[in-house]
Amino acid sequence: MPFGEQPAYLRVADDLRRQIADGALPPHAKLPSQASIRSHYGVSDTVALEARKVLMAEGLVEGRSGSGTYVREAVQPQRLHRSGYRTLGESTPFRQEQTDERVGGTWRAVSERREAGGRIAERLAVDPGEELMCTRYEFRVGDRPMMISTSWEPLRLTARTPVMLPEEGPLAGRGVVQRMAAIDLVVDNVEEEVGARPGLAEEAMVLGGHPGQTVIVISRTYRAGSLPVETADVVVSAERYRVAYHLPVR
C-alpha cells in the first residue's frame, strides 16, 4: 500500500460516515447490508465487515439482534459543571457534583461497610483491609440518569458519630464539607483527576448504552489539610456529557 493511502475498509467507512453526516442515511435508517456494501464498493466481505465495525466503534450505528444495523440518533452532549468557587461551600450531594444551579436533580443512595482495597486505601492513606463506609449514589435529572458515584470514607474518622452514614442522621443529604465540619474536620482542599475507560455492565444498566461504551471517570478526594476524609469515583457517559471546570484565578 502506498504511503498515506487509506486501507479499503477505512475508505468505505468514510463514505458511509459522510452519508450519515449529510442525512442520506438519517437516524434510524438501516445501514446497507454487508452484501450490499461488498457489491456497491467492490470490496471483500472482510472489508465490508470491518467498515461496519468502524462505524459501530464510533457510535454512529448500532446493531439490533435479528434485525440489522441502524444509524443512531446524534446526541448533543451537555455540560457537567464543576467549580473551584463552590466545591467547598454549602451543598447537597447533587450540587457537589453538578455546580450549575440551573440544573436541578435528585439522588438515591445505599451505604454499606467495606474493606479498603489497594487503590482506595492508597487514596485515603489507610491500610488495605481497613474498614470504610462505602456509599453508592445514582443521580437523576428528571426521569433520566445523569451520573453514578461511589464514595468511601474511613470509619476511623466517622464511626460512632452522627455522620457515619452520609444519608442518615441529622446531616443526611448534606455535602462532605458540612458533614465533616460537624466532627471538627475542616475540609480545605479537594483534588480531582479526570480519565476515561470502557463502561462496566452495571454502569451501562444505570446510565444507558451498552457495556464497553466510553465513560468519563472523575476521581475526587476531599482533604482536611493533608488528611483524606473522603474519596469518590464519579462516572458519566462520555457520549452525553462534557466536564466543564470554572476555577478561580489567584
Rank of each mutant, 00 (worst) to 15 (best):
residue 129 G to K: 05
residue 174 R to D: 12
residue 132 L to Q: 00
residue 136 R to I: 07
residue 132 L to I: 11
residue 188 D to Y: 06
residue 131 E to M: 12
residue 240 R to A: 12
residue 144 R to D: 13
residue 148 I to Y: 12
residue 206 V to R: 04
residue 241 Y to C: 05
residue 159 A to W: 14
residue 218 I to E: 05
residue 152 W to V: 04
residue 151 S to C: 03
residue 159 A to N: 07
residue 184 D to T: 08
residue 220 R to E: 07
residue 237 S to W: 13
residue 135 T to Y: 06
residue 196 A to E: 12
residue 169 G to R: 00
residue 169 G to H: 00
residue 125 A to P: 05
residue 130 E to R: 05
residue 202 E to H: 14
residue 218 I to W: 04
residue 127 D to Q: 15
residue 190 V to Y: 09
residue 182 A to N: 05
residue 151 S to R: 11
residue 176 V to T: 15
residue 208 G to C: 06
residue 126 V to L: 01
residue 146 M to I: 12
residue 176 V to M: 12
residue 137 Y to S: 01
residue 218 I to N: 06
residue 132 L to A: 02
residue 141 V to P: 02
residue 211 P to N: 03
residue 127 D to M: 15
residue 207 L to R: 07
residue 233 D to F: 07
residue 133 M to D: 01
residue 229 V to D: 02
residue 170 P to S: 04
residue 195 G to C: 09
residue 207 L to E: 06
residue 122 E to N: 06
residue 191 E to G: 15
residue 137 Y to N: 05
residue 237 S to Y: 13
residue 129 G to Q: 05
residue 140 R to Y: 10
residue 177 V to K: 05
residue 188 D to I: 07
residue 134 C to S: 12
residue 189 N to M: 06
residue 134 C to I: 06
residue 136 R to C: 07
residue 147 M to G: 00
residue 167 E to K: 00
residue 178 Q to F: 05
residue 237 S to Q: 12
residue 171 L to P: 00
residue 153 E to L: 10
residue 228 P to R: 00
residue 235 V to C: 07
residue 171 L to H: 04
residue 146 M to R: 10
residue 201 A to F: 11
residue 140 R to W: 10
residue 138 E to D: 12
residue 161 T to M: 08
residue 164 M to L: 13
residue 147 M to Q: 02
residue 201 A to L: 14
residue 208 G to T: 04
residue 191 E to V: 15
residue 152 W to P: 03
residue 196 A to D: 04
residue 238 A to D: 09
residue 172 A to T: 08
residue 209 G to R: 02
residue 229 V to E: 02
residue 176 V to S: 12
residue 122 E to F: 11
residue 187 V to G: 01
residue 220 R to P: 04
residue 155 L to G: 09
residue 181 A to C: 04
residue 128 P to M: 14
residue 154 P to Y: 01
residue 147 M to K: 07
residue 235 V to L: 09
residue 155 L to S: 04
residue 183 I to N: 03
residue 225 G to S: 04
residue 224 A to H: 08
residue 129 G to H: 10
residue 199 G to Y: 04
residue 179 R to A: 07
residue 233 D to N: 10
residue 155 L to D: 01
residue 143 D to F: 08
residue 182 A to V: 02
residue 142 G to K: 11
residue 184 D to Y: 14
residue 204 A to K: 13
residue 214 T to G: 03
residue 214 T to E: 08
residue 126 V to T: 00
residue 185 L to A: 07
residue 130 E to T: 11
residue 165 L to P: 01
residue 243 V to Y: 08
residue 157 L to R: 08
residue 182 A to F: 03
residue 136 R to M: 10
residue 184 D to S: 15
residue 202 E to T: 13
residue 184 D to E: 12
residue 211 P to Y: 06
residue 223 R to Q: 02
residue 212 G to W: 11
residue 153 E to P: 13
residue 136 R to V: 12
residue 157 L to P: 08
residue 210 H to T: 15
residue 179 R to D: 10
residue 197 R to A: 13
residue 180 M to G: 04
residue 241 Y to A: 01
residue 184 D to V: 13
